[in-house]
């Protein structure tokens, strides 16, 4: 474990709970893409199948349980409890256009042609594009609530910190995973446009609004 990965995991945890609290407190999921949340739930479920078979540490197992539980809870709040506030008119990204190609790629490009490894690879590839429905929704509505932009900033930062973690681990542990690094770069690059808007607007107290 290194500081980049620890801060990255905490940033990821913060993002998930900022979103969960926003929906719970405001009793509304306006401006939030339910499709992205479904993809994130799929990412965690397919990645953490080794939760019971492969014990790494208490921290590792605890975080996996928290990530799965909180993301499933978010999907539950959005599609069941506060379904009336779900903005389905703007959350129209066709996620099958993400899941199918990613599924195919996971079959073709992986470290090991075994079910667990292919599911892990699918999860890594899917996570890199899972935020697209959310970014697409913001581009359609033209703006995002400030709390939602904080959520996105923490979520985008987590994988950027993981890139630093992989640089650290490469030099100090000789650890290198090309699939995770390439997907992590794609994932972080997708946030660049948002990071620019966040830093130039939200940091100065303005609302995040995309140029019309």
């Amino acid at each position: 474990m290194n500081i980049f990965r620890l801060v990255g995991d905490l940033s990821h945890l913060l993002a998930i709970f900022v979103l969960l609290l926003k929906i719970w407190k405001s009793r509304s999921c306006a401006g939030v893409s339910g499709k992205s949340q479904i993809l994130f739930a799929l990412v965690f479920i397919t990645r953490y199948l080794d939760l019971f078979t492969n014990f790494i540490s208490v921290y590792n197992s605890l975080m996996k349980v928290i990530f799965i539980a909180s993301t499933v809870a978010t999907v539950y709040l959005m599609y069941i409890k506060f379904k009336a506030t779900y903005d389905s008119n703007h959350d129209t990204f066709r996620i099958e256009f993400l899941v199918v190609p990613v599924g195919g790629l996971a079959f073709l490009v992986n470290h090991d042609f075994t079910p667990l490894e292919i599911l892990w690879t699918f999860s890594i590839y899917l996570e890199s594009v899972a935020i697209l429905p959310q970014l697409f929704m913001i581009s359609k509505t033209g703006e995002a609530e400030t709390i939602t932009s904080h959520y996105l900033f923490a979520l985008g930062s987590y994988r950027a910190l993981y890139l630093l973690n992989w640089i650290y681990r490469y030099y100090f542990e000789g650890y290198f995973d090309l699939i995770a690094v390439v997907a992590g770069c794609v994932q972080t690059i997708l946030y660049c446009d948002f990071f620019y808007l966040y830093i130039t607007k939200v940091m100065w107290g303005k609302k995040l609004s995309l140029p019309a």
Partner: peptide
């Protein structure tokens, strides 16, 4: 292999 197969990251 580059990644020793053991997935120790979240």
């Amino acid at each position: 292999k580059e990644s020793d197969g053991l997935k120790d990251e979240l």
